[in-house]
Simulated scan of single mutants.
Amino acid sequence: MGQSATRQPTVVAEGFSYLECPRWHDGRLWVSDFYTEKVVAIDGHGDTDVVAEVPAQPSGLGFLPDGRLLVVSMRDHRLLVRDESGELTEYADLSGVVSGVLNDMVVDERGRAWVGNFGFDLMGGAAVRYTTLTRVDPDGSVSVAAEDLGFPNGMVLLPGNVLVVAETFAGRLTAFDIGEDGELSGRRVWAQFGETPQTDDVGEAVQQLEVAPDGICADAEGAIWVADAVHNRVIRVQEGGKILDEISPGTGVFACMLGGEDGRTLFLCAAPSFPEHERRPVREAQLLSVDVEVPHAGLP
């Protein structure tokens, strides 16, 4: 593994509830703080600006071709859009095709959004159930893009119109080709980490996962940085599953994003754990950063 295995991240900002879905945009890192129901933008000095308040809990973020921000509103199954004045309005209602709490999202250069969902009541202790990926087109129309995904979570768009989805409870990254019409085809395993758990018990599944891929981002060599939600680390993986690098900051890492002026700053969304009842009442989440050699590529 690379030198960064021994590199300790530094704290960029702290005092959050639970950070997810970081996006480097326009010189700042935009990120959702789940349980304060805020989207914040953080500059390189740690100065924080609240850019949106989402009462039904913000998650996935993405930017439309015209620069407007799309925000996943988790609990009411909606996509919201933020205009230049900062006002949020409904962009699409996903409740007709999605029953579970919405999750992460990636937006492509044409303004198409792919949105994951939990598929089951994770925080309520329900059994693991596989679920769908939803596509929202620029005209606001909503459709099922893929089925039978094991907790679709972070996503990246690689060159050649390839969508890679982190399936947290399947322990893998799954790739699709995106057609001109937005249809997905050519489904394949991009990286498999150990055996996929064959249990529907969340606790057992977590114990069995060698990697629980959460938030992900891609670099200019075609590798993907993966936040491993149950092993307090972020790993750099090439297609086929070989782990090239690992950074272990000594706390939970649930999402990552390459940014900074040269694209070589790896931002980590860190917290001691992920259960809502542990994170909601406290402000222990941090945004960390570490310098890496290969810069950002792809989307987000």
Rank of each mutant, 00 (worst) to 15 (best):
A285H: 06
G241F: 11
H25G: 00
P281N: 11
G171F: 05
G67C: 04
S143T: 15
V71P: 10
G259Q: 13
Q8C: 08
A113R: 11
V40C: 03
V12M: 06
S4A: 12
L64R: 14
G27T: 03
V51H: 05
V54G: 03
T168C: 02
D219Q: 01
A205F: 08
M155P: 00
D148L: 01
A56M: 11
A146S: 01
V282Y: 01
S185P: 00
V290M: 05
R280C: 00
F16T: 07
P65G: 13
R187K: 15
E239P: 09
V40E: 03
G215F: 09
N161C: 05
G27E: 03
R78E: 12
Q57P: 00
R280L: 03
T10V: 15
M74E: 12
A255S: 15
V282D: 01
P281D: 10
T134F: 07
W225T: 02
P300F: 14
R264M: 04
A13W: 10
R7T: 11
D26Y: 04
D47Q: 14
F176G: 09
D148P: 00
E167N: 12
D228W: 06
A5T: 13
D137M: 04
N232Q: 13
G2Q: 11
F274I: 15
V98H: 00
Y35R: 06
P275Y: 14
T168R: 06
K242M: 10
V206A: 13
V71G: 11
R283G: 01
V54H: 02
S99W: 07
V202E: 09
V237Q: 05
A285R: 07
G27K: 02
L79V: 07
F151L: 10
E90L: 10
A227N: 04
A218F: 01
R75I: 10
S248E: 13
D201V: 11
V72C: 06
L79N: 03
N153K: 05
A146V: 05
L94D: 08
Q207M: 13
G240Q: 08
S141L: 02
G240Y: 08
F254Q: 03
D93N: 15
